[in-house]
Each structure stands twice: as structure tokens, then as C-alpha cells.
Design a protein around this nucleic acid. Structure first.
Lengths: 338, 338
DNA sequence: GTGAAAGCGCTAACAA
DNA sequence: TTGTTAGCGCTTTCAC
């Protein structure tokens, strides 16, 4: 099949490409009759404009990027759905990039964006991200960026997130209220802001309840299941075994449950478990899992909407926007002794 | 910050853009000294080539598309990881499109691809997809397509999938072997090939074991949780209640478990459950879930590799390739009475 | 209301 | 080895 372009149509109709172009974009300069003829032929010939020619000329790509650590996570999956709902309506396209928690990858991706490949970026930073030059650097190229969930306080742009300090505090308080005092916290990064804030909430809740914060109870996990299992096993076999665990990310849940099974520790009798999680299966786990759940879909929608506000009106001041969403603690059996 | 392009570099170095272009692409025509000077200045100026200019000129986008029904599903999430692993290595970019099971959306997306936006497409068809014109139409524009998991027999291109007939048969046989005979099948689409094949395996297994196939036991579900819950509730409250359920997609698991909880039906005593699923939490559900699990990551990798074979060598015959992966039945407590 | 011409940034053929 | 030129397909002045 031939590739049909403006010239094809122009030639057949004895018009110029300029006229055809304008007709297709419904310009007022063009007579109705011409518009009809052009539109008709275009549809007959199945004309689809070349987006790259248009991008090159207009310096606009009609494309945004989503840069996230991973997809195999309910929060990000749901957030993508929210983003997509907005993007869809705008007729934009979505490039997706997974950093797998690598700062190097994140930097390389952002470097590439200087090319004008995308009109805006939705970012959730990697666990390894320790500086924000790549971000501000891109901003200096007038590419709007909205960070969501895993934000960086340092960068000056719109932030869509939950109140992680409070969430950490609430989770810890919930455990304390249910009779647990030896509470461990599984982090995924020392540097990640959300992890840090959740942890601060955790420490503060302990302190407020006269429970000393124990270094040994703060454990850093990774992307590696083997490693995480080992770390969790160690924790649960240590002589001062905790009686509760807070998992700062969804994916640690399975590790914890399996290690407990393996060690024949009963949840919540021997050990309580609460997880930051959007897992649909939380309610049907054995036992059902108490979660801190974020409004992922709404956060995705909001992040995308903000980004488009800036794309559509570049004077829109992203840097002043902080959209804080409430996350909710959903108490289930994993933290409540019968 | 200024946008630096070939001309910027050429001017500063008193070279032509052609020379700079060639130098950057390490052409043998260019002297080493010139290459060094160009490379150096490019890195100093932070030059990033405009991908759309290059795409326009070379008629190659260095971009592929993933078109899938949804992301919030472990199979697709893992498949994306596999795809990304390959794409990453090729220096390609990934556009992602979610059809949310809508045939209309799928068609519109494929229509757009005629523009040359992508060099290839990885597709898992929507549940509503009833014809394949949009696919063959795109193929006639020389865009290679690889279908994975949810394939269409009619289209002539590479297919990466599991043996769904066998999987359906095996699942059913497993239930029969464990003493269940009133086995229901939850489908998501009458037209979807994988759903049909899994169902055929189901029927055949029943027939082979002298169990009549009951229409009432074959239930079509949707994307709507409310609706699915109602349908499942009906099924489980009917006077001829089944004693086992096969869920043809992962996301129905939570519905089934919750309805059972609600109706106070015990799994697997009152009702067995087996699901096509890649859920990481399968092993820690209450009770642990027997699954038919597909090698999603490998399938994603294979699909992407095949696509690139065709992109890189357009004579590569995709249409003869069918990569059948084995899915595995992982028996757990949800189908095995104690 | 329509068209000619220039140009977005890059690459490829061809000249020098 | 380097440069000139043309052009990918589209949009946008500006002239008619």
C-alpha cells in the first residue's frame, strides 16, 4: 500500500499542500467546499498525517513520558490507568520508561528528553536517585515535569503525593494500639524521600509512645527477592525478634508472608504485618493484610492533568503546586489479634 | 537553555552539518581528528539529536508500540518487563496503549500507526476484537506485528503464546482428579481465541471423563467488578451450585474469593478454585491458590526479539513463527481437599 | 480563498 | 576527507 501524504491529496485535487493542510485542520481561510473535498478524499485514501513531520515543524510532539521504577506493582499500574484516562482525552501518546530503581538509567532517560522527544514528563524517582540535576536540567529546556508518589523535595515542580509522614505514623500507631511494641520497618532506600518520610513518621510514633527506636529494626530491602528473603529471615530469627513489621512497599508482602510460613510464625499472633499496598488481593490473603492504600488512580489523573495544564499554558506555575492525597489505613487481620 | 543542533556545532567548528552528522555517527569518511573535535564539542554543548528530524528523514522511528488490554494484571506487567529488557538493549523507545478491552480503541490505535509512528507493534488483542482488518491493514504498510498471549489465529504473523487448549484441559483434569465434577468456567469473551481454546480444553476434559458440559456452568465475565460479583454470586447460589470454578483470567480471583467469603462457602471444601494467574500472592492467599501460570517475562522477551528480527531484516518471515510456551499448573490448597 | 516558498533538524547522494 | 544540495512531510508566513 502506498503511503499517502498531503501531496497525494493536493495533486489529485489540483490544490497546493498548503491548502490541503489548512483544510484538514479546519482553517477559516479555506472555503467549505474545498474542505469537504479534501476531507472526503483524505478519508477515502485513508490519509494519516506523519506525526514526526508535524512534530519537527511545530516543535511539539503530542507525546508525554511516564518514568517509573517498575510496572509490576499495583500502585504504578493503577496510576498508569489514571494517567492514561487523561492522556487519552487529550489525544496524546505515552512513552513508558522503567528505571528498575537505577539512577543511571533515570539520568540517561532524562538526557534523551532534551531532544524534544516529549512535551512533558511524569516521574516517580528511582530508589537510587540521589541528585536532581537531571531533572532541573530538563526543566531548563522548558519541558514540564510533574513528580508523583516518589517525589523529591529539592526539585521545584508540581508534586502529587500522599502524606507519607502521616502514613508512617498512622501505621505505627495502629500497631502500637493493637499491642505491638517491637516494630520493624522495611525500607527500600535510604535516600528516597517517601521512604524517609514514612520512616520519620514511624520513629516519631515510637518516640511519642515511649518506645525506643532500634537500629536493628530498620532494614533496607532491594529489588532482589533472594536477598530480601534472607534479610527478613534474619530479622525474624534474631534473638530480639520484632513482633510487627511495616513494609514500605507492596512487593515485600509476599516475602514476609512466605518467610513467616517457613519459620512457622503465625500472623498476627507471632508477628503483625502492615504494608503500603494497593494489592487487590489484600483482603483475601492468609491472613487478610492490613494496608496503607494510596488513591493511585486519582493520583495518576491529577498528575497528568497538572502536566497538561503546563503543556497547554506554559505560564502555568507548576512549581507552587503540591497535591497531597490522603492514603487510608485499611485494618484487616494481619495486625489484629483475635 | 539554548537548543543545540547540528548547525550549532558545525558553525563553531567551521564545518558543514553533513560532516558533523557523519562524525557523530562515526562514519569512516571522517578523519579521526575531526571526529574527536566534533564529539568533544557535542558533549560539551550537551548535544542531543532531534529524534523527529531523524525519523522523518530516515523513515524509521526507533520506537515500538505495546498494545494491550490493561496493565493492572501480573501477566501483562511481567510481559512488559520482558519486552522492556529487549527494547532497552536495542536503544528503542516504547509507546504504550491500553485498549481496556475496547475493539474501537484498538482499531483507532492501529489506524494511527499507519502514520509511521512506530517501527513495529506488540499486540495482545482486546476481548471485543472480532475482526482483524485493522491488523492486516497495518501489515500492508510494512509494519511488523507480533501478537502475544491473546492471539488471533486468522492473522498471519508471529504468535507468542501458551498452549491454551492444553492449559484448559489440564486445569479441568486437575479438578476432576481431585474429586470435583460440577466444574464451572468463567470466561471473559466469547470471541477471544485464548478464552475459546481454554474453554475447549475444559469441555474436552469433561467429555473425556463422562461429565456433561452444562451451559449454565459457562459464565461470561466483564471488566466490571460489580457485574462479575453478581454473576459469580448467582452461580454459587443456584440450586445446582458448581463444586469448582476455573477462572480464565487473574483478576476474577478476588471476586470469587470475596463472594465465597460472603456466602460462607469454604474453599476448597465447598468449592474449588483454579485460576489462570501470574499473581505473586497466589501462594499466600487464603487458601493458597492453584494457578495455571504463564512464563510472562519470557514471552515478552520472545515477542520483542521476534519483532526486532523483522524490524532489522524486513525479509524475516514472521508469518511462519508460532512460539508456544508451556504454562504450568501449580497445585495449591484451593483445589485440594484435606 | 488559495498558493508559493521557506524551513523545522537531520541524512544521503553526489561533488569537489 | 569535507561540503553542497536536496528533501523527508508538514506548517506557516506572506503574497496574490
Amino acid at each position: 500500500m502506498e503511503n499517502v501524504n498531503l501531496k497525494t491529496i493536493a495533486d489529485k485535487l489540483h490544490l497546493s499542500t498548503a491548502t490541503v493542510s489548512k483544510a484538514l485542520r479546519d482553517s477559516h481561510e479555506i472555503s467549505n467546499e474545498t474542505k469537504q473535498r479534501v476531507l472526503h478524499l483524505a478519508s477515502v485514501l485513508n490519509y494519516v498525517p506523519n506525526p514526526y513531520a508535524s512534530s519537527l515543524r511545530k516543535r511539539v510532539s503530542k507525546t508525554i513520558a511516564i518514568v517509573i521504577p517498575e510496572v509490576d506493582d499495583s500502585f504504578f499500574a493503577e496510576a498508569i490507568n489514571g494517567i492514561e484516562a487523561i492522556v487519552q482525552g487529550k489525544g496524546y501518546h505515552v512513552l513508558i520508561y522503567l528505571t528498575h530503581e537505577s539512577f543511571e538509567k533515570e539520568k540517561a532517560i532524562f538526557m534523551d528528553f532534551q531532544s524534544g522527544r516529549v512535551d512533558g514528563v511524569l516521574l516517580s524517582v528511582s530508589a537510587e536517585t540521589v541528585s536532581t540535576h537531571h531533572i532541573s536540567n530538563l526543566q531548563s529546556h522548558q519541558i514540564p515535569i510533574v513528580v508523583f508518589d516518589r517525589i523529591c523535595d529539592e526539585i521545584s515542580t508540581a508534586k502529587v503525593c500522599t502524606d507519607d509522614y502521616n502514613a508512617g505514623y498512622t501505621a505505627t500507631k495502629h500497631l502500637i494500639d493493637n499491642g505491638y511494641r517491637k516494630i520493624a520497618y522495611l525500607s527500600i532506600s535510604k535516600t528516597l524521600s517517601i521512604s524517609g518520610k514514612r520512616m520519620k513518621g514511624y520513629s516519631q510514633a515510637l518516640t511519642d509512645n515511649n518506645i525506643p527506636v532500634k537500629e536493628a529494626y530498620i532494614v533496607e530491602c532491594t529489588l532482589n527477592d533472594e536477598y530480601n528473603n534472607a534479610v527478613i529471615r534474619n530479622l525474624l530469627q534474631s534473638k530480639s525478634r520484632p513482633d510487627a513489621i511495616i513494609a514500605s512497599v507492596e512487593r515485600l508482602t509476599t516475602n514476609i508472608y512466605l518467610v513467616c510460613q517457613h519459620l512457622q510464625l503465625k500472623i498476627p499472633k507471632d508477628i503483625a504485618v502492615i504494608s503500603f499496598s494497593n494489592l487487590k488481593t489484600a483482603a483475601i490473603l492468609n491472613p487478610s493484610l492490613t494496608t496503607i492504600t494510596q488513591p493511585a488512580y486519582e493520583m495518576g489523573k491529577t498528575a497528568a492533568s497538572l502536566l497538561f495544564k503546563s503543556i497547554e499554558k506554559k505560564s502555568f506555575p507548576l512549581d507552587t503546586v503540591v497535591q497531597l492525597f490522603p492514603s487510608v489505613l485499611i485494618p484487616r487481620d494481619s495486625t489484629i489479634k483475635k
